[in-house]
Amino acid sequence: MTGRRLALVLLVAALAGCDQKMADQPRYDPLEASSEFPDGMSARTPVAGTVARDADLSATPTAMPFPVTMKLLQRGRERFDIFCAPCHSVAGDGDGIVVERGFPAPPTYHQPALRAASDRHIYDVITDGYGAMYSYAARVPPADRWAIVAYVRALQYARNAPVAELPAQLRARLDGEAGG
């Protein structure tokens, strides 16, 4: 009897020692620190030369590979406003808020040299960076880079668009604002 009672006490004590730690399970949260690796990161970068299973291995197109639709332009505008506008400004003049705070001013998109530059040049600058500008390859995937290229082209065209090409509604507004 005493033996059984002792066993019961031990069992209860053993169970009380069980801690399931459901709130902190033995797995990594995204970007959690790890003591297993010398640099302390659980998020490992792929070995050099790794190719993703779904990677597009075709050569980078030399010109805009997508039809320029309103959808593409809207995507380009959204990405441009997130990643480019802080320096290049929403209109592409190169006087964004970060430039106001002391970052070296990038050239305006509206200068002749950049108006004449190829689509691929703009794409490559996003991919590799240029001068003080860092690479955006890790932040902007290729399809979005082309969308941004399309939008940059739209910004350039907008500065030089013939008034005759404006839709009636915009034309009326322009005339109204110019007159007022």
């Binding site: 949260d29 995204p30 970007l31 997130i82 990643f83 705070r101 002391g102 970052f103 860092y134 932040r139």
Partner: peptide
């Protein structure tokens, strides 16, 4: 600009040091 995973994955993500240095290499 910094939390780039927020539209595509479970975790919004934290910026890599390079993202901070995109501006702070100059200012």
């Amino acid at each position: 600009y910094c939390h780039g995973g927020v539209e595509t994955s479970a975790s919004a993500g934290l910026p890599a040091t390079e993202v901070c240095m995109t501006c702070h290499s100059q200012i």
